[in-house]
Design a protein around this nucleic acid. Structure first.
Lengths: 182, 182
DNA sequence: TCGCACATGTAACGTGTTACATGATTAG
DNA sequence: CTAATCATGTAACACGTTACATGTGCGA
């Protein structure tokens, strides 16, 4: 799933600027699919425009810099939907958190406990995000996908709450942390 | 989480060759943390050896090419554990599958249904993998992490089984698929 | 007045992938 | 006899990030 596809997916639901696309993909609803920077988005949009998958118009604003608003074309829509017919790339999950937990037995209890608590807080904040998104969602499939995410997150939360203590018990008593680092 | 760290994490549990590390990270237990290729692993190991975080010895084999077996050093161990004390990178989840489902309303029902079934099959195969891994696990934290993964996957599975039909209902009746691509 | 939000864009850089070179053995 | 597995390594390439350039207006 490259930056090009993400631009098309976002523009599918409505016009946007490069600036807005980046925001959506880093902080917003799309952050669960991608995480793209300006250096990737602006060139991608320029190329998409050349290929006539999107068009742009410039809008002057007083005080603020001019905006370059992109719209998806009919060809762009067709190409994007067509790409969904092709074999999907595999989902990928990369978790430094889980790698950390795997080594709980080599780490001080206090650190393991802290990381577990941080994760619970993170999940709660994500869950709140999902609720906000669900209120704002516009696309018909959104609600389903959001609830899917919520279900998985809640399962993770419950597991940590039910079994966190077992992991902490595995870790090193706190005086030992100098030994662990040695 | 770069390739260097993964090499250290794998070598932490025992000696391995570059070939074996790649296998573990693509097909094996580590595939849930990374997915590294030869072109990344071999240079990383060479650099780690220069920095004295690992050592290597060559083992001749009859019939097969010679192996270069890497071992982690004391410094390597300490450095790796120390890196776990530092602030963790965020988990990342990238799912083409969810992006696809988001656009269910633009796609033919048969395709949505097929993808949902493929996913169920994929989850079952992952679940079976987890069971195998749990039998083979050597590291104390492994069992916890594996059960965590299993819990999340099972939640995903149940959600798809319980709510898949709602998504299919949202999709386009099958005659319509030419229109969707247009 | 400091820094942030808005807004676009480029150049240097980092990191990892794909494809190739090499070559014996074994299973189908 | 073909393909896969074992095994290491490199070079070309793709893709994306970080940092910078540029400039205004607003809130703390």
């Amino acid at each position: 799933m490259n930056v090009r596809s993400i631009c098309l997916a976002i523009l599918y639901d409505g016009d946007a600027t490069g600036y807005e696309i980046r925001k959506l993909s880093v902080e917003g609803e799309y952050s669960y699919f991608v995480d793209a920077s300006y250096g990737a988005i602006y060139p991608a949009l320029a190329r998409l425009e050349q290929e006539e998958f999107v068009t742009s118009r410039v809008e002057q604003q007083d005080g603020k810099p001019a905006k370059k608003i992109y719209s998806i074309t009919k060809t762009g829509r067709a190409t994007f939907i067509q790409s969904l017919f092709e074999k999907l790339g595999e989902d990928e999950y990369r978790s430094e958190f889980l790698l950390f937990l795997r080594f709980a037995s080599e780490l001080p209890q206090s650190l393991v406990e802290q990381r577990l608590n941080e994760r619970l807080a993170q999940i709660d904040s994500d869950l709140a995000d999902f609720d906000r998104m669900k209120r704002e969602h516009n696309h018909p499939g959104d609600a389903w996908v959001i609830d899917f995410g919520r279900t998985c997150m809640q399962a993770a939360r419950h597991y940590i709450e039910a079994h966190g203590a077992e992991l902490i018990a595995l870790a090193r008593p706190d005086r030992d942390d100098a030994a662990a680092a040695e």
